[in-house]
Design a protein around this nucleic acid. Structure first.
Length: 813
DNA sequence: CATGGATGAGTC
DNA sequence: GACTCATC
């Protein structure tokens, strides 16, 4: 895609910390407030000011006391303190909440900070441009929208409405896209407000730098468009230092060497000049940005790449560290914080860090600071707890020469130089599946065969009260599934019995027939029902005792080895990484991939005939599963035509997560739930083991261990899965055997034979998988070559913008 | 004493 | 890998 013709939005929360405080304490609404941290000294440092307080002259960088002078009735909520430092986790969580809403619109979202995200909405704009007549866009569809270079948004709308392809002077097409983009961004901002209660502002332009530049021009709760032809209007008064990445030393150098300080002055230098003054890369970058071109792609990144915490140790109360004990104490606190944040992260993102970095700075006698850092790569055996972080960090610091050699005797050891800054961060994350987990699962399977066999003997009890027994016997999901499999081989009727005796909601197996999932296939095989037409090879049955010996035989349908099961679990989860958003995301991916809008109208009356006709038992389930149809709008692309074989898709309500699901996705969806369940139990187990081993490690010493409340709250979530009404039997339902007399076709992607009626869904799976891979392999594949095509150098508007030139700098503080 | 952390990216 | 820069 042409990097110059993207539509990029920067969403920025308005005085975010204040909004979070207001939401948490509605009494604050409408009052002047400023969020402070560390209030003991002069009322604390202000880090956010709401608009009421701003109007009274309160700004950041003030102390709380100052703010009180300017605005006596100002409220000063304080950032909580934990382990001796400001704890911003509630803002972090709120930021994530917002980002989740944004993510529903596009996976091409780059979180730039706790309260900012870039969205590449090019695909959404294209899709919308195709589906609506842009001339129908009116001002009431984009309230609070401003366009640079126009007195009001009406001017820009008029430009677009009067657009004709003969207008050569201007590329109105770009303007049109921005207008459509602003409609979408309005929808996005509305969704953010409706779903979180937070207000935000946005900048809409063709790239990140420009979107960022205009985002703050109208605030709060407003959005600003920067059309290409208005870039020079902006630049005419814009200080170089306002441009992202030119705000620091490099920006100073640019201004000094070129003897300029304004963006428009930058345009007078040739590429050669800039490249000889700076280096090739920076020269090109400056040359481009002077013309409003920024090729930097929006990276698909939701989660941070590193998690760290640090502490400045200056001032009266937090003196620079001079002795070993205080160093240990701070490292312990930092390590504990890392640990607790990692706990959350591992549950949410299924990953663990492979590296930690400890950094610190010491002050020399001449007053200068010297900073230093050391890294450590975790090994498989390392137990990622606060103690580990502390002890490793301490080791690393001790190994350095910078002022940490001990002086004095053992009792009163002093550091050679005072430490003024300490930080620990962890990064180089890896999927849990790839490392520790695989090993653990393999170990587990190797050891569990006996137990599992033993459990089979007690199956009768299991049926009576599955959940309770399961808890009592501490049967985890994996064993549960194994139980089901082997129960099947021994007594095929058991599953049916479970269904009929425990089902409150009817099972959904009829739908499974049209959608053979991996787990269903696995079950089917265990049942030795291999009537599937084209499966010439009879799958070798894998006795449980041999499970551990099964290698990874890929490309073989009959490979139900542990590694394949794990792979499938991971695939299922990877597809739906975020449990809250899974379906939205899939739908978004589909939309993105196919530029198709999925209309959200569920028409219960026009049930698709083929589905009802197919199996009479479905009919009986309709009430409970809410089957309806979801129509897909059609457009004229090729993909579209191929896909529009089915013009309507049946849906059902998943009893577990309550989401509406494409009936063709039940297999994948149920796999997802099972996989999620297995994963969660896995994690809880690992955690439980760790807590157990840790307490023994400490020789009974009483030790305050961090226990994450949220995790404990989360724990029932996995139990919920089974405890909800008949969910236990629903699982059996998921895994029920299938008889498919449906013809198959070879998938061009994987070569597998796929029943024709679920080929579309199968292809979706591949596409989603690819996209997912792409997104996660943020291989910064920008082609920032020298081959930058510049279409228009001069940008002078046809119509003189009627804007009275308030200096644009004044928009920036 | 007095924006303080957090984070990502670039450079050597 | 260590260190510096830049941003909010």
């Amino acid at each position: 895609m042409d990097n110059e013709n993207r539509i990029v939005a920067l969403i920025d929360m308005d005085c975010f910390y204040c909004q979070v405080e207001e939401k948490l304490n509605p009494d604050l609404k409408g009052k002047p407030i400023a969020v402070v941290q560390y209030n003991p000294w002069k009322g604390g440092g202000i880090i956010a000011v709401n608009y009421v307080a701003r109007s009274m002259g309160v700004t950041r960088h003030m102390r709380g006391d100052e703010a009180k002078e300017k605005c006596p009735d100002i409220q000063l909520p304080c950032v909580p303190c934990f382990r001796g430092k400001a704890d911003i986790s509630k803002y972090r969580d709120a930021g994530k909440e917002v980002a989740r809403v944004l993510q529903k619109f596009t996976p091409l979202l780059e979180r730039a900070s706790i309260d900012e995200a870039y969205l590449d909405i090019t695909a959404l704009v294209q899709e919308r441009t195709n589906s609506i007549n842009t001339r129908t866009i009116s001002r009431d569809m984009i309230p609070n929208t401003y366009a640079l270079g126009y007195d009001s948004i009406d001017g820009l709308i008029a430009d677009v409405h009067n657009y004709s392809s003969e207008s050569l002077e201007f590329d109105y097409d770009h303007t049109k896209q921005l207008l459509v983009g602003s409609v979408i961004v309005t929808e996005i901002r509305t969704a953010v407000f409706n779903e979180t209660g937070y207000r935000c502002s946005a900048g809409i332009a063709h790239n990140k730098i420009l979107a960022k530049l205009v985002c703050g021009m109208n605030k709060p709760d407003k959005q600003t468009i920067l059309p290409k032809h208005s870039v020079n209007i902006l630049y005419s008064t814009l200080s170089i230092k306002k441009v992202k990445s030119l705000g620091g030393k490099f920006g100073d150098t640019v201004c000094e060497l070129l003897k300029i300080n304004n963006m428009c002055q930058l345009q007078s230098f040739t590429l050669k000049e800039l490249q000889s003054t700076f280096d090739e890369k920076n020269g090109l970058w400056l040359y481009n940005i002077a013309r409003g071109i920024d090729l930097e792609p929006v990276q698909a990144r939701f989660n941070p790449k590193s998690i760290g915490c640090c502490k400045q140790l200056r001032g009266k109360t937090k003196n620079a560290l001079v002795d070993l004990d205080s160093l240990k104490k701070w490292l312990k606190d930092l390590g504990d914080e890392i640990e607790s944040r990692l706990e959350n992260d591992s549950v949410e993102n299924n990953r663990i860090p492979k590296q930690m970095v400890v950094s610190f700075s010491t002050s020399l006698r001449d007053g200068r600071d010297v900073s230093s850092s050391r890294s450590y790569n975790f090994s498989l055996e390392d137990d990622l707890c606060g103690e580990l972080f502390m002890s490793k960090a301490l080791e690393l610091i001790m190994e350095t020469t910078e002022g940490t050699k001990m002086q004095g005797d053992d009792k009163n050891r002093k550091l050679k130089a005072p430490i003024k800054f300490l930080g620990i961060s962890v990064g180089k994350f890896e999927d849990i599946n790839d490392s520790k987990k695989t090993k653990k699962i393999l170990d587990y399977f190797a050891n569990s065969t006996k137990e599992t066999t033993q459990k089979l003997i007690n199956l009768d009890n299991v049926q009576k009260c599955e959940k309770q027994n399961r808890l009592e016997r501490n049967l985890n999901a994996k064993e549960f599934i194994l139980d089901k499999f082997f129960k099947g081989t021994r007594n095929e009727t058991l599953i049916e019995e479970v269904n009929s005796t425990h089902c409150i909601n009817p099972p959904i197996e009829p739908k499974l027939e049209r959608n053979e999932s991996f787990f269903a296939q696995l079950l089917k095989d265990k049942n030795e029902i291999t009537e599937t037409n084209d499966d010439k090879t009879v799958h070798p049955k894998i006795p449980i005792s041999e499970v551990e010996n099964c290698g990874d035989v890929s490309n073989d349908d009959s490979d139900y080895s542990v590694s394949t099961i794990n792979m499938e679990i991971n695939k299922s989860i990877a597809l739906f990484e975020d449990s809250d958003q899974e379906l939205d995301r899939i739908d978004n991916m589909r939309q993105l991939l196919n530029s198709k809008k999925i209309l959200g109208n569920y028409d219960n009356e026009s049930l698709t005939q083929d589905i009802v006709a197919d199996d009479s038992s479905v009919e009986a389930n309709i009430e409970n599963t809410h089957i309806g149809t979801k129509s897909l709008s059609t457009s004229e692309t090729n993909v579209e035509r191929e896909r529009s074989v089915t013009n309507s898709v049946a849906i059902y309500h998943c009893p577990i997560c309550n989401k509406i699901i494409d009936i063709n996705k039940i297999g994948i969806h149920s796999d997802y739930h099972i996989a999620l369940q297995i994963r969660d139990e896995e994690r809880l187990q690992v955690r439980a083991n760790r807590i157990a081993t840790n307490s023994t490690k400490l020789n009974g010493q009483s030790r305050k261990r961090y226990i994450n409340e949220e995790l404990i709250k989360r724990k029932p979530k996995s139990d919920n899965f089974f405890s909800q009404k008949n969910d236990l039997s629903s699982i059996a339902g998921f895994l029920v055997k299938l008889d498919s007399a449906i013809p198959t076709e070879n998938c061009i992607e994987c070569g597998k034979k796929i029943p024709v009626n679920k080929l579309l869904e199968h292809m979706d799976f591949h596409e989603a998988q690819k996209l997912n891979k792409q997104l996660n392999n943020k291989s910064n594949a920008h082609q920032n070559g020298m081959n930058v095509k510049r279409k228009r150098v001069s940008v002078s508007p046809v119509k003189k913008p009627k804007m009275q030139c308030k200096t644009i700098d004044s928009f920036f503080k």
